[in-house]
C-alpha cells in the first residue's frame, strides 16, 4: 500500500489557502460593501444621531457589489467551462 502523504498534505494546504482567499476573503469584501452601503444611506444611526447620506460611500458599495458579482460569475463560468467548451466550442481561458 503506497500512499503519497506529501501530495495529500500539499493538496490539503492548497485547498485551505484557496478556500481562505475565496471563502473568507469574499465575505470580507462583501462586508465592506455592506458597511459602505449603510454609511451611504445615512439616516438615523443606532446611537440616535442622524447622519447625512454619503454618495461616495454609496458608489464605493456599488463598486464592491459589482466586483463580488463578477467574481461569482467567474466562479459560474469556471464550473461550466467544460460544458461551454463541449456545447459551444468556446474554450474559456480560466484557471
Amino acid at each position: 500500500m503506497d500512499i503519497d502523504l506529501s501530495s495529500i498534505f500539499s493538496s490539503s494546504l492548497n485547498v485551505l489557502l484557496t478556500g481562505l482567499v475565496l471563502g473568507a476573503g469574499l465575505p470580507l469584501l462583501f462586508s465592506v460593501g455592506i458597511v459602505l452601503a449603510d454609511r451611504g444611506a445615512g439616516g438615523e444611526l443606532a446611537d440616535g444621531s442622524v447622519a447625512a447620506p454619503n454618495p461616495a460611500a454609496k458608489h464605493g458599495a456599488r463598486a464592491i457589489f459589482v466586483l463580488v458579482a463578477l467574481i461569482v460569475l467567474y466562479g459560474l463560468l469556471f464550473i461550466t467551462r467544460k460544458s461551454i467548451s463541449h456545447y459551444l466550442g468556446i474554450d474559456l481561458p480560466l484557471g
Binding site: 501530495s7 495529500i8 493538496s11 490539503s12 492548497n14 485547498v15 484557496t18 478556500g19 482567499v21 475565496l22 471563502g23 473568507a24 469574499l26 465575505p27 462583501f30 466562479g75 469556471f78 464550473i79 484557471g95
Partner: peptide
C-alpha cells in the same frame, strides 16, 4: 453567507486542486 461562501469556495476549487 459566510458558511456557504466557505463551502462554495472549497467545493469548487478542491477537485481542481487534486482533492
Amino acid at each position: 453567507m459566510a458558511a456557504e461562501a466557505s463551502s462554495a469556495a472549497i467545493i469548487l476549487t478542491s477537485s481542481h486542486l487534486g482533492m
